[in-house]
Design a protein around this nucleic acid. Structure first.
Lengths: 334, 334
DNA sequence: TTGTATGCGTTATCAG
DNA sequence: CTGATAACGCATACAA
């Protein structure tokens, strides 16, 4: 069923049918009704490829994230999809994992779909933050389509970034620990990334500003499960700490489980703070103090800017920083 | 940069370029190398619309779920995307919510994208299970494209379903409770759905088979947050129970928190079982006994069947039921 | 207000 | 092995 069939059945030309479909230009109410009637009757669905061919746009946004089964990403994608859909854009989704090679492959793949815009969720796409070569592929891709990054910053033409001020949040929590007399604060993280590095920098700055030593033994990276991370902490007998700043709620929960196994009172003997304000944080016992890094707001400003760019050609901001909020619950006493 | 430009630069015809791009038919090594060289040099990206126009396929699968921020859905989508991508298919994602009207809108939207296949994640798309009119839109859509359902069953031509045997799992847990001497078992669910109804039927069947009464007061529906559900349970002073079968881990956690507030020993005074074996289940304290409904397996068989259908035209099975597994942790003593 | 003709970039069918 | 050319279905400039 194509536009010619409809035209024939309705006794008009294909141009008229096209006009009705796009309700563009003037069409008399009578013919419009007739055409609409026929379309309804035969269940006509316009061929999007043919349309795309001419217009070279499919009103489709590419969304790439490392792992949609991660709560943070899933929330972001959920929000993005909902809002983009409201504006009449559809989403094509890719999950690239964290390997450089896969990231590049996925970006190429999405570009080949002639997406109107690409949004990258997660700081993994910013690389380790100190090696510009690692993000060169983004600047290359940005030549084809605007790129919006959520929770990462990469400098470059046609790349627009929105991220939470993780540095400040980590600084504040660390400083609060120090004020409460904590002596050895563990920085617990999963892997190096733009955002992880920000957090660590905030943590270290707070230590330094308070004349605390930056002790490498208190920087702990684990990419394992909650239970395994707890066990690694347990096994490391020499490791002592009375406060934990975890870069993710799941890691914070590992610390809570560690405390339980060692019979440490929370928050008196061990305080714990997570990151993300995810659902996990209210599942554990005691419920987790966590840093809300405002994923929804980041997505909201991103969509807003994207639509402005697409519809009204207004140039987005190169970077937008949003303050975090510390959600105080029961694993801290500040 | 289109196929004509490449042809001109390489000094061949567009037909030859096309052959190289699709490495179809015979092309001499020499010309192939030359064309490839030119394509590489100018960074040629084939226009997918034009290709779609001719082939009427974009190697794209539509995935629809009510809410990608739900852990279960996110896991399923993650798995689907990963495996479809391996087979060279891309995913276009929609999040429809639970309202009928929105579901229908999204299905139309995805159909208009000329997807090769549609997969529906979640039992919400099966309606309440007792009203065929509610799923009529699916049979209609299935006329355009094959539909694969995950964790739901809807009869109809060109609709293929894979679901976990929630009935059996609910039956077994309830029976186990009874064997352990539980007297009042609460069925805690969020909303009516195909899967929820299955679970409830298994629960009731087990009660009946053991000559227990089916007490309406022990059927509790809550669509609220973990904390609110806990509070609703708390407020309902007359409600007494010593076992809980929750249709989702988050509801089970609400029950665990209820026990903690009332100082009930788990599992001795109150046992709790969740559903989904989600990450939430190992975050709470004590860690949750939960029913693993094998989302990965459902997705795996779905992808497998889909690819067989798409590539080799083999007819998929109309329905596939997969047994659940009870993951025993610390909120039960069976 | 409506119709005609053309272009969009590929793939596929035929000839050579 | 390679080239010319006809679809594919729609939007749109131009003509009426």
């Amino acid at each position: 069923m194509n536009i010619y069939d409809i035209a024939k059945l309705a006794g008009v030309s294909i141009a008229t049918v096209s006009r009705v479909v796009n309700d563009s230009a003037k069409v008399s109410g009578k013919t419009r009704a007739k055409v609409l009637g026929v379309m309804e009757e035969v269940g006509y669905i316009p061929n999007i490829f043919a349309r795309g061919l001419g217009l070279n746009s499919m009103r489709t946004i590419g969304i790439l994230c490392p792992d949609i089964s991660d709560i943070y990403m899933a929330n972001a994608v959920s929000y993005l999809e909902k809002n983009l859909n409201k504006h009449g854009y559809d989403c094509i989704l890719g999950c690239s994992g964290h390997r450089q090679e896969e990231k590049e492959k996925y970006i190429k793949l999405l570009l080949s779909k002639r997406i109107d815009t690409l949004v990258l969720v997660g700081s993994t796409y910013a690389g380790k933050g100190d090696n510009p070569a690692e993000t060169e592929y983004l600047r290359l891709a940005a030549k084809e389509t605007p790129i919006f990054m959520i929770n990462a910053y990469v400098p470059g033409e046609n790349i627009y970034c929105a991220y939470a001020d993780d540095f400040q949040a980590a600084y504040e929590v660390t400083a609060a620990y120090i004020r409460r007399g904590k002596k050895r604060i563990l920085f617990l993280s999963n892997a190096r990334s733009f955002s992880g590095d920000q957090k660590r920098a905030g943590y270290e700055k707070a230590l330094i500003d308070n004349a605390y030593p930056v002790d490498g033994a208190l920087i702990f990276y684990s990419e394992h499960s909650i239970h395994d991370t707890r066990d690694m902490l347990l096994l490391n007998k020499k490791l002592e700490f009375d406060g934990v700043l975890a870069t993710e709620d799941s890691l914070a929960i590992a610390a809570v489980k560690y405390a339980k196994t060692k019979n440490l009172a929370i928050p008196a003997e061990l305080s714990v703070v997570g990151f993300n304000n995810s659902r996990l944080s209210i599942c554990c016992e005691p419920e987790l103090t966590t840093i809300d890094n405002k994923g929804e707001i980041l997505c909201a400003v991103t969509v807003e800017q994207m639509i402005s760019l697409l519809e009204e050609k207004v140039q987005p901001k190169e970077k937008i920083s949003v303050p975090c909020e510390i959600i105080k619950r029961n694993t801290t006493d500040f």
